[in-house]
Every structure is written in structure tokens, then in C-alpha cells.
């Protein structure tokens, strides 16, 4: 068996793949958080619940309406985005004039409510969601076995991240969004409907979380608590990357996912805390985050 640094190469590549998968989810979720925080100045604690909602919409859609995975990939983000838009319009928008703490508390309460509701109906145990037939099985790369669905997740999340980045950095709508992040009242004075922009942004963030939830459903089980477990790590990713930096959130997500995977190989005991250790170090050296601008 081939060894690198005394580690079997299969184990190394296997964990690298796990790290890349986790990194994909971290990147997609922290991207949504960064977009929402950038414009709304709200730390969206409901992000994990919206991710879980995505997985459940896909699961329930299949159970009750026979919605297949491919349809779920399109329908679910829309459903979660509409849910986000309603929440923003009816509730969150009333808190913008208050201390940012209220937005955080509100979304935290929302997360507990949504997760509690699903727990009441579906229990804490996970529900299985099978890998779509077209992506089942795997490919033997010679040096390792690559499950097709996992390769698909890595490619699709990378595409999703880049599409979101391009939407924000390269389009006209994105330029409104960036400008409104810097100076919302002036942008509004120019005749741009900033309240609508805020709703769309929150919906976009929620939709991204929902999309991630669908991708995650066949890998993790669909459970009411799947978001809670993940979101704490994602917050650490956002802190490391720097609040409000789009590309920073994406790159940091992948890097930390891979770092976590490698830690599982070299020093498994530290794998569940390595991201938080990195967060602590980054906060000490660069409080604004790796890609953040010093405010």
C-alpha cells in the first residue's frame, strides 16, 4: 500500500474528499450568511434552519408529490427563498432601525421555532433520502473509489458559489447590492428600491441555504437538527473569512473543510475543534478576518 508521511494514501485521499464535501457545504452556507450580513447587517441565525428546511422540502416533496431529486434542486431553493422573503417582509424588516442584536435574537428564535416544529412532527431521528439513480455508484480512479454523487456535489456547489459571486460582482443588480451595502440611503435617493433589495437579498441567502440542504440530503440524513450541527462551524468559517467578503467566504469554506479533513487523518482527536482553533488564531492576528476589510 502506498504511504505518505506514514499514512495510507487511500485514507488521505478519502478524508480529503470528505473535507472537500464538507468544505462545499461550508462555502455555500457561509456565502449566504456573508451576503445577508453584508447588506442587512443581520447575523442570520436561522441559516441552519433554512438549510434544514431545504432538505425537508426535498424529502417531503418526494414523499407526497413524487418530486425527484432534479426537480427538488430547482423547486426547493425557490420555496425556501419565498419563505425567507415572507419572513423578511413581515418580521425582520421591522428590526432594521434597532440594535443589530435584535436581528440576531429574532433569527435565533426563528431557528428554534422552525426546528422545534419539525422535531414535533418528525422526531429527532434522520429520514433517509436516496441518491438519485443517475448518480448512484462510483468511479474507480485507480488510486481511490470516488462516489459519483459526492463528485457531483463538489462540482455543483463550486458552480453555485461562482454563480453567486458573479451575480454580485459582475451584474447590474449586484452593483446595486454592493452600493447599498456601502451607503443604503444614498442608493435609495438615486431611485433604487432598497427595501425590495433587502428582501431579495434575504431571499437569495435563504434560497442558497435551501439549495445546500437538498445537496446535503442524500449524504447526511434529513433531520430537524441537521442545521444546528452545521451552523456553528459555518459561523466560525465566516469569522475566519471576514464578514461581508463574498470570495473570502467561498475560499475559506473550502480551505477549512479540507483542513478539517486532513486533521482527521493526521490527528483525529483535534478534528472537531481545529476550525475553532483557527478561528481563535485569526481573531488574534487579524480581527477583521482573512479577507475582511479593517473597518
Amino acid at each position: 500500500m502506498t504511504m505518505i508521511f506514514g499514512i495510507p494514501i487511500q485514507a488521505l485521499l478519502g478524508q480529503l474528499l470528505v473535507g472537500l464535501i464538507n468544505g462545499s457545504f461550508y462555502a455555500m452556507l457561509s456565502l449566504g450568511l456573508a451576503v445577508i450580513f453584508g447588506l442587512l447587517r443581520v447575523i442570520n441565525f436561522a441559516h441552519g434552519a433554512q438549510y434544514m428546511l431545504g432538505a425537508f422540502v426535498a424529502f417531503l416533496g418526494m414523499q407526497h408529490f413524487g418530486m425527484n431529486f432534479w426537480a427538488a434542486l430547482i423547486v426547493t431553493p425557490l420555496v425556501v427563498a419565498i419563505f425567507g422573503a415572507i419572513i423578511e417582509r413581515l418580521l425582520l424588516s421591522r428590526l432594521y432601525d434597532l440594535d443589530p442584536l435584535y436581528g440576531l435574537l429574532f433569527t435565533f428564535g426563528l431557528a428554534l421555532t422552525v426546528e422545534g416544529t419539525f422535531r414535533y412532527f418528525y422526531g429527532a431521528a434522520g429520514q433517509p433520502y436516496s441518491v438519485p439513480a443517475a448518480l448512484s455508484g462510483g468511479t474507480n480512479l485507480g488510486f481511490m473509489f470516488l462516489p459519483n454523487y459526492r463528485a457531483f456535489v463538489v462540482i455543483v456547489s463550486l458552480a453555485g458559489c461562482l454563480a453567486t459571486w458573479a451575480l454580485i460582482e459582475k451584474t447590474r443588480l449586484g452593483s446595486y447590492l454592493r452600493a447599498a451595502t456601502e451607503n443604503p440611503s444614498l442608493v435609495q435617493a438615486f431611485g433604487i428600491n432598497v427595501p425590495l433589495l433587502l428582501t431579495l437579498t434575504y431571499a437569495l441567502g435563504a434560497g442558497l441555504a435551501g439549495f445546500t440542504g437538498v445537496l446535503a440530503a442524500p449524504i447526511y440524513q434529513v433531520s430537524p437538527l441537521m442545521g444546528t450541527n452545521l451552523i456553528i462551524v459555518v459561523f466560525a468559517v465566516v469569522v475566519v473569512g471576514g464578514m461581508g467578503s463574498i470570495m473570502g467566504a467561498i475560499i475559506t469554506g473550502y480551505l477549512l473543510g479540507i483542513t478539517e479533513g486532513l486533521t482527521k487523518v493526521f490527528y483525529p482527536e483535534a478534528s472537531s475543534i481545529v476550525i475553532f482553533v483557527i478561528m481563535a488564531i485569526v481573531l488574534l492576528i487579524r480581527p477583521a478576518g482573512l479577507f475582511g476589510k479593517d473597518a
Partner: peptide, 16 residues
């Protein structure tokens, strides 16, 4: 009120 995250041309085209 020039926006740092927008290019000169994006700044120009910003107000509808």
C-alpha cells in the same frame, strides 16, 4: 458618495 466596491463605470451607471 462614491462607492469603493464599484468601478468608475459601475458608479456612473448606478442611478437609474
Amino acid at each position: 458618495g462614491i462607492f469603493a466596491t464599484l468601478t468608475v463605470e459601475e458608479n456612473l451607471k448606478l442611478p437609474p
